[in-house]
Design a protein around this nucleic acid. Structure first.
Lengths: 164, 164
DNA sequence: CAATATTGGTTACATTTGTAACCGCTATGA
DNA sequence: TCATAGCGGTTACAAATGTAACCAATATTG
C-alpha cells in the first residue's frame, strides 16, 4: 500500500515532488546543457553565453543596433550593452555610429569575430546534434511543438499577469 | 528559392539559427517559467527559488542534513547553506545538531514553515497544471521521457567530459 | 594512538545579473 | 521653435551566484 487513507473531510494536500515538477526539471536540464556548452566554447574563445548569443545573431543579421538585438535574443538591453562592450574590447565586433540617428550604433562582426563565429557554429551544432541524437526523429518533432506550446503559455503569464 | 547554390568546393557553413537552437530555447523557456513562478510566490512569501526548493524537499523528507539536500536538489552546497540560513532567519526551518555527528545539522520545517509550505504547494501545482494543460496527455508523456533522455545525455557530458 | 585524509558546513572574494537612474539625441505638438 | 516626451544606450548600485579557501569534527591507516 503506497497511498495513505484519508477521511473525506480531511484536506487533500499532496506533497510536491520536486523531481517531478516541470519548472524544476526544465531548470536543471537547461543549466546542465548551457553550462556544458558554455564551458566548451568559453574555454576556447573566452566567450560568455550572452556574448556568444550576440555574435550568433550578428553572424546571421549584420548591421543591427543594440535595440534590434534585444528583440532577437530575448536578452535585456543592459545585458546586450555589456556583451557588446566586451566583444568590442576583444575586437570581435565593430560599432559604427548611424549618421541618420546619432544615438544608434550599427553593430557587425569584425573579420576576427567572423572567424571565431565560423569556428563556433559547427561546435554548437555538434552539441545540438549530440543532444538530439538521443531522441528519435518523432521525438524531435514532438519536442519542437511541445516547447512551442509551453513557451506560448509562459508568455501568456507574463503578458496577461500571473495566475490568481 | 530559399537555399543558395554552392559550388562543390565551397565550404558549407550553415549559419546558426539561434531561435531554433535547442539549448537556447530551453534556456528561454526555463527562465520564463521560473521567473513567473518565482514572482508568484516570491511576492507573497518572500522566498527565493533556492529557498523554496529547500522547503519543498524538507516538506516531503524531514530530518535531512544540508549534504542530503545537496543530493536531492542538484543545488550546490554553498547555495544550500545560504538558503538554509535565510530560512532559519525567517523561522521557516529549524536546525538541530546531530548528537551522533557534531558537524551535521538536522533540518526541518518549523510550524510556520510548514504552513507556508502547505500554501505554496497548491500554488505551484496550479502553475504546473496550467502549463501542462497546454499539452495533450500524449504530449505530456512524450515530454516526460524526452526530458529524461536529454538529461541523461547532458549528464554524460559532465561525467565523461565534453565533446571533442 | 598519532598523523593524515575526508566530510559537513561556512566564510570571503570575485563575477555575473538585475534594476533604476541617467545622458544625449530625436520626435512631437502647442 | 521651444518645451517635453520618448528612445537608444550606458552607468551605478544592489542582489544573486560561483569558486576556493577555510574551520571543526570524524574517519582512516600505519
Amino acid at each position: 500500500m503506497t497511498t495513505e487513507k484519508r477521511g473525506p473531510d480531511e484536506a487533500v494536500r499532496d506533497d510536491l515532488q520536486l523531481e517531478r515538477f516541470l519548472p524544476y526539471r526544465l531548470s536543471v536540464l537547461s543549466n546542465r546543457v548551457s553550462n556544458a556548452i558554455a564551458q566548451a566554447y568559453g574555454s576556447r574563445f573566452d566567450l560568455t553565453i550572452p556574448a556568444w548569443r550576440v555574435m550568433a545573431i550578428l553572424g546571421r543579421f549584420p548591421d543591427l543596433s543594440a535595440a534590434e538585438l534585444v528583440e532577437q535574443t530575448a536578452m535585456d538591453k543592459v545585458a546586450i550593452s555589456r556583451a557588446v562592450s566586451v566583444l568590442q574590447r576583444n575586437d570581435y565586433i565593430t560599432r559604427s555610429e548611424d549618421p541618420a540617428d546619432r544615438r544608434r550604433q550599427v553593430l557587425n562582426l569584425s573579420p576576427l569575430g567572423r572567424e571565431v563565429y565560423e569556428r563556433i557554429v559547427p561546435l554548437a551544432q555538434q552539441y545540438e546534434n549530440d543532444l538530439m541524437s538521443s531522441l528519435t526523429p518523432e521525438e524531435r518533432a514532438q519536442l519542437d511543438s511541445i516547447i512551442e506550446k509551453l513557451m506560448d503559455r509562459a508568455q501568456d503569464w507574463a503578458e496577461r499577469g500571473l495566475i490568481d
